[in-house]
């Protein structure tokens, strides 16, 4: 079962189009199996209006399956889902009017132009042709696609496709947005620009649930992170809270001469509670007290005549968090096929 943190999480009070402060998304006891595989195994989530929840986990952890249930694409085996107060199973049709989904694969019709893609989506939301065209033009301008509006999406770059896909999710101005691995496969620049767009949306009051396997993405975008592994939420909290669970800051010392590792470990041991470890010529330790530790370390190493190539303090990353929580690194491959 899920071992969730009981810590009180600081919420950002952002007024949203629903009622401020209330849960825009609330999920309890969500379960979904595919044959023998329990892809989602008792997930509970709560996302306050106007905030971003990052669902962080490796491939096959159950992220996509969860999003598919929250967006009415998949019926849960058990559990309750409420999005903007609507039941995702019983009121699926009404709910579809209020949510936007941008998927893992940019779901745009390659044979249509950018403008035609968005106009089609608008009309399928029940807009008239003129309304849909107007909305399409607005979105194309906002996502800097106006120049490409009349070209078939086939010729778009990966970043442009993602922007078009995100624009399609926003056609009906949904108060809640689901983004399933929005930047997977994008180059760093497109990634950054997509992050900025998402941040803009949140500033305007949109509630976002995003899945990602990138720790830096969750770190940057999410107000709150739920770490999911093998279908259950194994930890939840702000990025800082999760990092605190792993422990304090780390000192990393790169040695001139690897042969001196043992001497260095002995010299630095008093700075930490646990014995320093050495990996590929880098001595690592979790320091007890941040202040003055660098000077102290240099002095201690100098005293025993150990040459230092590089030395630095580092906050634990979400990578460290993931490793600590799951016992395996974040870039696991799809082992149980749960996301398909």
């Amino acid at each position: 079962m899920a071992t969730r943190t009981e810590e009180k999480v600081t919420e950002r009070a952002a007024p949203g189009p629903v009622s401020a402060g209330e849960a825009a998304i609330s999920v309890r006891g969500l379960v979904k199996s595919f044959g023998e595989v329990r892809a989602v195994d008792g997930v509970d989530l709560e996302v306050r209006t106007g905030t971003v929840l990052g669902l962080l986990g490796p491939n096959g952890a159950g992220k996509t399956t969860t999003v598919r249930m929250l967006t009415t694409l998949l019926k849960p085996d058990a559990g309750e889902i409420r999005v903007v107060g609507l039941d995702a199973v019983k009121q699926a049709a009404e709910l579809r009017e209020r949510i936007g989904l941008a998927g893992q694969y940019a779901a745009v019709d390659e044979n249509l132009t950018g403008s035609e893609n968005l106009t089609m989506v608008g009309r399928l939301y029940g807009m008239s042709r003129a309304q849909a065209k107007r909305r399409a033009a607005e979105l194309l301008a906002r996502f800097e696609l106006t120049d490409a509006a009349k070209r078939p999406a086939r010729g778009y770059s990966g970043g442009m496709r993602r922007r078009l896909d995100l624009a399609a999710a926003l056609v009906a101005r949904p108060p809640v947005l689901f983004l399933d691995e929005p930047t997977t496969g994008l180059d760093p620049r497109s990634r950054l620009s997509l992050w900025e767009t998402i941040e803009d949306l949140v500033r305007d009051g949109t509630t976002v649930l995003l899945t990602t396997q990138y720790l830096d993405e969750a770190d940057r975008l999410a107000d709150k992170i739920a770490v999911i592994d093998r279908g259950t939420v194994i930890a939840e909290g702000t990025s800082d809270e999760l990092k605190d669970r792993v422990g304090g800051e780390r000192l990393e010392v790169t040695l001139d001469d690897r042969e001196q590792a043992e001497t260095a470990i002995e010299a630095l041991a008093p700075l930490a509670d646990e014995r320093p470890v050495v990996e590929a010529g880098v001595v690592k330790l979790t320091v007890r007290e941040r202040r003055g530790v660098i000077v102290d370390a240099v002095d201690r190493l100098k005293a025993v005549d150990v040459g230092v190539d590089d030395l630095g303090l580092r906050r634990p990353t979400l990578d460290d968090v993931f490793l600590t929580l799951t016992g395996h690194a974040a870039e696991g491959d799809d082992q149980n096929g749960a996301t398909r």
Partner: peptide, 13 residues
């Protein structure tokens, strides 16, 4: 395969 069916199914159509 390209996910367009998901898009359609997420729309109130």
């Amino acid at each position: 395969t390209k996910g367009l069916i998901d898009r359609f199914r997420s729309l109130p159509m």
